[in-house]
Design a protein around this nucleic acid. Structure first.
Lengths: 192, 192
DNA sequence: TTTTATTGATTGACCAGTCAATCAACGCGG
DNA sequence: CCGCGTTGATTGACTGGTCAATCAATAAAA
């Protein structure tokens, strides 16, 4: 048991180091040595735990996805009613936990990775579907058939906001409220 | 003069080869040798013309941006009235010329590059500003102060659609009509 | 002839992954 | 409580391969 715990902490340390290192350099070209150094251990140890660079990246991606799912689930369960839950999903998706420079950098880089690596693409599709279904659950009772289109639009909008945030051209605050305002606009006009 | 012409064609050949090669492999990890081979010449010649790999990539990016600007300007000048011009900008931005697998692949990859390379980030910001201003020109007379928010939303939405297209999860047709429907929804409700 | 185009060969750097060797903790029989 | 063997943690050194960039040499053009 002690053994397993140690292994887990080491892996987690490497994953955190990977997120930081990837975001800081903005590429997947980061070397295993870079990540290991960031985590304060030798490159050989990283291989010992993950087997290959690709496996390390995929684990990192899974971890980011896991954290995202956790936060969303928490936020949704704390909200009451469809409208509040929808806003909770948006807030959680664009919350500071995912929107810090590190995570955004890593996130963007994974999109690039997804073009090469089928497993990476699969993980990204999982995220898309999860977001979509989270939105649809509460959009359907409010909008009926139009829910699908609105859900797709919100999904694309969130991703676009991420993308632009990574370049930090516009003011961040402005970008963050875009999906929320879109949703409120839709809900408001439907209420009438 | 002859000299310049030859140099230009060689450079263009390399740029086209770069677009194809990047898109096909889905990464910036393509080697100069790969690109040169695709263009039917030796790697050494590619260095002769561009000096470095980075310069070659940046030239490629500028070329893609130039083509985009060209198409948009053409489409806009052919349209009549603010509403038609807005739709023209959207259609041109998501048109098949930029939406084929090759260009989308290269585009996405450049977003990743922009995190490392300041010049790449600058070029992407140029594109953002150009799109924004293209939209604002015709949105302002229709929407007044709200034009800014709508322009930002459309920009983010387009980028998001690109991103999702690159993963081709949803049906392409569905994705493509999202920005258009959003704009029509805004304009429709304002007309009232 | 002078300049430009073009290439094959080479170099120097870098990096993922391997391996053999230490090191530290733990368990266990005496 | 003490050697001692087992097992996982950890590392430094090394390898095989790749790639950007350079260079010297040749062909073609001006």
């Amino acid at each position: 048991m002690r053994k397993r715990a140690r292994q887990t902490t080491r892996k987690t340390e490497l994953i955190n180091a990977a997120i930081q290192t990837i975001a800081r350099s903005g590429t997947l070209d980061v070397t295993v040595a870079d990540i290991a150094r960031q985590a304060g251990m030798s490159p050989a140890l990283a291989h010992h735990y993950f087997g290959s660079k690709d496996q390390m990246f995929l684990s990192t991606m899974r971890e980011i996805l896991r954290r995202y799912g956790l936060i969303v689930r928490e936020a949704v369960s704390a909200a009451d009613g469809p409208r509040a839950r929808l806003l909770a999903v948006l807030d959680a998706s664009l919350g500071p936990e995912h929107f810090d420079a590190d995570t955004v950098g890593a996130w963007l880089t994974f999109y690039a990775l997804a073009q090469q690596n089928e497993e990476a693409a699969r993980l990204l599709r999982v995220y898309h579907r999860r977001l979509r279904s989270n939105l649809l659950v509460d959009l359907r009772p409010l909008l009926g058939v139009r829910a699908v289109e609105v859900a797709e639009t919100l999904g694309a909008l969130i991703d676009g906001v991420y993308l632009r945030q990574a370049l930090s051209d516009s003011a961040p605050a402005m970008l963050l409220k875009l999906p929320r305002d879109y949703l409120l606009g839709i809900l408001g006009s439907k209420e009438a």
